[in-house]
Amino acid sequence: MKAKHQRLVLIGLAVAAMIGAALLAMSALKDQAAYFYTPSDAIRDHVEAGRAVRLGGMVADKSIKREPDGITIRFIVTDNAATVPVRFTGITPDLFKEKSGVVAEGAFDASGTFIATNILAKHDERYMPPQVARGMHKTESLVR
């Protein structure tokens, strides 16, 4: 075997071992590195009341209700398998709307309502002009 072939094999083995180690680390991180809980995750894992977490999913259609004080809203987050009611007091991003993606930061209260302290809008990977969008439904993509 020539020296350069020996080096190639050696480096190939090292790279394979490295990629294997990285994949193992990533799969171990799978739960910790998740940026948010979906409603199904939150119910399955019994996220305890008061623990600071993020909740992500779609805002259910016709679920946004404004309370009399004018700045508190209630809405329902869904992943088409489970739903969580959310309450939030404050200003939401422009892209926060029904049938659209949302990530809420906050904690569950004792009754199972998610009390959000911050709302982020999550949009999907599709971009299109308004006249195209008007002709089609714009849901489903965030719920895998």
Binding site: M26, Y35, T38, E125, R126, Y127
Partner: peptide, 29 residues
Amino acid sequence: IIHYSVLWWNTLHQGQSIGLTSSKIAPSM
């Protein structure tokens, strides 16, 4: 890890818009 981060984990960043064969960006844009 960068490439698959949006597939492996729930992320705020949206998924991939442009693949080798398909695109989720309207042709006019």
